[in-house]
Design a protein around this nucleic acid. Structure first.
Lengths: 246, 246
DNA sequence: AAGTGGTCTAGACCACTCA
DNA sequence: GAGTGGTCTAGACCACTTA
């Protein structure tokens, strides 16, 4: 009996998923520890671990080494790239996912500004090797959710507020506009992938959890790429949105 | 000696990653089998498996049960949502990733058309419970890379070519236009996440490999949502792109 | 100090592919 | 049938958190 085509670790993952999906499940209390689950389901510890690894990849639990496995409570952040364009008119109040609409406290975790050589791909896009690099991390509720690195040709940035940590009201784009190089068109290129070891450390996620990588090119009126930004977002933390006309 | 903060399975993954990254590595020949690697590195089979699981999540290898582990050779497909708008002018020839520009053979793997009840979220968006569902799978090189499910209010689709498997020249949108319901504005909402068991089976990927879920709402001139499509893309197979103005 | 998750071993047996 | 990956066991020891 027990048809059991499904591996044990998947069956256990299914049960745990169901258990924590209840709204009554207290997110401040850990799940039963691995050893207890191992006894309850009468399987080896390794099998329980595989089940938990699955839930972890799905973003349903946070694992704290030495402490326990906790239900993850997280409302994703809505990143609306084209908000200024049309979101209020077309998309408002019609969200598919239960996401916060940008009003959540997104804070700057760290910021480093330096002159450097651009990575070859970025250099190709910008048509410049020497660049100003603005490298930063964003936090929500003290949790890192996004890495962003911007590249601007050094000749453009030199002597402007762009090279200061605080680039002033309106930020980098406002300064570019003042220099007659206002970005008017943007292209965002996106991949869903697994994080590099470096990104895992900075975002404090495991190798199994997906991230979205967004590379944004900002074009001036003369179709010159004036700024390139590479962003890496914790996949579970964000919902991204774009609007466009046919 | 042997500082070795790095777990063995990561070190082995690093070595294998390096080995297959060589352009000379023959993608038609499998890597050395697990048992051989286990001997070579003097570790248990489980440790080798963990290393290979990592490469698999990164999309670097394809594992064929009973056959072996193969280097994955795959150029991602460029999905340019706003191509008609501006890609030729602004983005052309300036790609960050080495992607095929849509000319690759993307074929229909399966297509099912039926009338049904809409999932509650879709019903909310459409303002209709009874819908025509167009459910399809797309292949590239005989490999499933995308699942797409479209929902159109039943009252709109009934009696038009939309309810036929072949919806005619220009497809569904052309038929909607003929009915005076041309989609003119689109909102695409995107998440990077892990696939559900069903999606894993259909896309033939494992739970660790990320997918991108895109929900597209098509608006008519009167700001009515006339069509909702949910797409699930193999994250490693696609590069997505959007363009917009400030 | 006690309890948690993280890594690892040395096996066993099953499911699948391929010549 | 020989060889491959997939699941699983019953341990051991280490790293980290909490009190």
């Amino acid at each position: 009996m027990g048809e059991s085509r499904e591996p044990k670790y998947r069956a256990i993952a299914d049960e745990l998923r169901l258990a924590i999906s209840s709204p009554e499940f207290d997110p401040d209390k850990p799940l039963d520890p691995e050893r207890a689950l191992s006894k309850r389901y009468d399987v080896s510890a390794a099998t329980v671990r595989k089940a938990i690894a699955l839930l972890r990849a799905e973003g349903l639990v946070d694992v704290r080494h030495g402490s326990g496995v906790y239900k993850r409570t997280w409302k994703p952040i809505l990143r609306d790239a084209t908000k200024r364009l049309s979101a209020e008119q077309w998309g408002a109040g019609r969200a598919i996912w239960d996401a916060d609409v940008g009003d959540r406290l997104v804070t700057l975790g760290s910021l480093e500004v330096r002159y450097d050589r651009a990575p070859s791909r970025v250099a190709d896009l910008l048509g410049a090797e020497d660049v100003l690099v603005r490298d930063r991390t964003y936090l929500v509720d003290y949790r890192p959710v996004q890495l962003a690195v911007s590249y601007i040709p050094a000749e453009v940035a030199r002597g402007t507020a762009i090279e200061r940590r605080d680039s002033g009201p309106g930020g980098t784009f406002a300064r570019l506009a003042e220099a007659g190089l206002a970005p008017v068109e943007f292209t965002e290129t996106v991949r869903a992938r697994t994080p590099s070891p470096d990104e895992q450390a900075k975002l404090r996620i495991t190798a199994e959890r997906p991230v979205a990588e967004i590379v944004r090119c900002a074009f001036t009126q003369t179709k010159r790429i004036i700024e390139v930004t590479s962003m890496v977002l914790d996949g579970e933390a964000y919902v991204m949105q774009w609007s466009f006309t046919s």
